[in-house]
């Protein structure tokens, strides 16, 4: 079997976080080059501060200043840092108990070499120059027993932005593979369930109704019927087709399930359920293993399909 087709799928968003009063205080103080904890019902000082007590679940309010120096309670060496980690050179992830705290904070130690790291080692905060009110205002910790820089004045922080980026390799299933390779040749390959004889386009690894592999391959024409549709008038983040556009369910002749595609060549107000359409392919040199080889569908000029011919596909 040939290797399934795959393509990168990158997902990213700049999420925002309302800090609330507790983490807001912590982050605002980081901006001031201060580390703040909170006292729990059992007297322990939690750093970072917890909004609710882990013992009683009550809201905690007694903030406690702690030092920007502390001791390593445990660590792990990172020889090859990953994207978005605190340092771009080898470093240690460490649990650091700051002086005055009873719990440990996870952060990076810029130790240079694992030989210099040890549990019990003394460390201090290395403050970032341009602080925004984020945990990364602590650039990292460094091995030292000396105090860090003195606090300064800064405005409060109530919101932080946390960009998240995920990089996937999306692989087609073995069933999708012949379908996608067919598209590269301008062919529309569907599969029929051997039990219920329903024709799936795009094909599935298994019939959703019978649970058996859809092994029978058949080729469909590029004409079909609009079962139903909507006119997308709303712009949104990440949209790849400028609105307005008609997103239509196209039931190819011979298929038993419609799929969503773009309908052009007709004013949105003139689109009808039952309208007969045909594919408009992109120039052959632009073809790849994707449904985007069909640039869009357009009315074929045939009379509308009767409602009964597609009503069971709504």
């Amino acid at each position: 079997m040939t290797k399934p087709l795959s393509a990168p799928l990158d997902v990213g968003f700049d999420y925002t976080r309302s800090t609330g009063p507790t983490l807001g205080r912590f982050l605002s103080d980081l901006r001031r080059r201060k580390v703040t904890g909170i006292r729990g019902s059992d007297g322990r000082v939690h750093v970072p501060p917890l909004e609710y007590d882990p013992v009683t679940a009550e809201r905690l309010t007694e903030f406690v200043d702690v030092a920007s120096t502390g001791v390593v309670r445990g660590w792990s060496w990172i020889p090859e840092p990953l994207e978005a980690q605190p340092l771009d050179r080898p470093f240690a992830w460490a649990l650091i108990q700051l002086d005055g705290a009873d719990t440990s904070l996870l952060h990076a130690v810029d130790a240079g070499s694992p030989d210099r790291m040890s549990t019990g080692a003394r460390v201090r905060v290395r403050w970032r120059a341009d602080r925004v009110g984020a945990i990364t205002d602590i650039e990292c910790f460094e091995l030292s027993d000396e105090p860090s820089d003195e606090p300064v004045e800064a405005d409060d922080v109530t919101m932080v932005t946390t960009p998240v980026h995920l990089h996937y390799t999306h692989s087609a299933s073995p069933t999708e593979d012949p379908f996608l390779r067919g598209l590269m040749d301008g062919r529309l390959i569907a599969q029929r369930c051997p039990a219920c004889e329903k024709v799936y386009f795009p094909p599935r690894p298994a019939c959703p109704t019978d649970g058996v592999p859809t092994t029978d391959q058949i080729e469909l024409s590029d004409r079909g019927t609009i079962t139903t549709f909507c006119v997308v008038n709303v712009p949104f983040l990440g949209q790849r087709i400028p609105p307005p556009y008609v997103s239509a369910y196209v039931l190819l002749d011979g298929a038993d399930i419609p799929f969503l595609h773009l309908l052009l060549g007709v004013a949105p107000e003139d689109v009808r359920m039952g309208m007969r359409v045909e594919a408009v392919w992109k120039p052959r040199e632009e073809w790849g293993p994707t449904m985007q080889n069909i640039d869009h569908f357009r009315p074929s000029g045939e009379p509308d399909a009767p409602f009964d011919s597609y009503s069971q596909h709504l």
Binding site: L9, I241, S247, F259, L260, H261, T290, M291, Q292
Partner: peptide, 8 residues
């Protein structure tokens, strides 16, 4: 990947 980006 491989699909038509008409989702909204």
């Amino acid at each position: 990947p491989f699909t038509m980006p008409v989702h909204a």
